[in-house]
Design a protein around this nucleic acid. Structure first.
Lengths: 124, 124
DNA sequence: CCTTGGTGGTTACCTTTGGTTACCTGATGA
DNA sequence: TCATCAGGTAACCAAAGGTAACCACCAAGG
């Protein structure tokens, strides 16, 4: 109680940038969306195509994930004014730059998660 | 259709290692614990000292965070058999190696979260 | 004509779980 | 007597995430 209001390093206050970033990349589909969009060949991917490339995601989750990413300036929407209007998504430079640290996390996971599994199995 | 089933397979199944890692580092105190322990000078930190170095954390959350990390083989517990038994925590090599990708995430956050804030403010 | 399917969403509803506060243990030392 | 050590337990809250239904539009099939 009464956690000393004293100055703590910025890494720990509620507005800590790392915490706020982790809140985003910790959501279920965020990192997958970044990866799929970062690795997309034309750079631009339509909504339905994204659904196909992210197996298991629902329309709602894809829609809300893309919305929050757009609000964060990580991607842009382009609405094609055709018959059934198609919407295309593309990472901004900011969003693209985020793929680097995420790739580091992915690499660590693919290299070391087996060790975590062993430890978890041993711990019962 | 799907002439190439695009064997990005394992990255998207429920047992995807990246997803399972993100589920961990996305929890509120996990990354802070890794950082504090990785930067600790003796390498070993007691429970109460951890509480002091992670302002705002409760006993329960510190306890459960450390437990899950121990179960994952990321840290080890050393119980000092003194009168009030003190418990010391130390990252394993596995846990220590995780600090590298997390540092990349922290670096990105400190460098770019301001841009996200601007975009979010502009988006209203 | 009617039905089906695919386009890009939105809304309502429900469950799960992460996180919080609060209170409990026993032992010890001042 | 009281606080501190390292937790455990219970109850509660808010948010994440899932399912399902709905919308408007259009193309193809029968």
């Amino acid at each position: 109680m009464t956690p000393s209001p004293g100055r703590r390093g910025d890494l720990f206050d509620p507005a800590c940038p790392t915490r706020r970033l982790l809140d985003r990349i910790g959501t279920k589909w965020f990192s997958m969306a970044v990866k799929v969009l970062a690795e997309a060949e034309p750079g631009e991917v339509g909504f339905a195509e994204l659904r196909r490339r992210i197996p298991g995601i629902s329309q709602k989750m894809l829609s809300s994930t893309l919305q929050s990413m757009a609000a964060d300036g990580l991607l842009t929407r382009r609405v094609e004014a055709t018959n059934p209007p198609r919407v295309h998504y593309r990472l901004t430079e900011l969003g693209l730059s985020l793929d680097a640290p995420l790739a580091a996390v992915r690499a660590w996971a693919e290299e070391h998660m087996a060790e975590i599994d062993e430890a978890a199995a041993a711990a019962g």
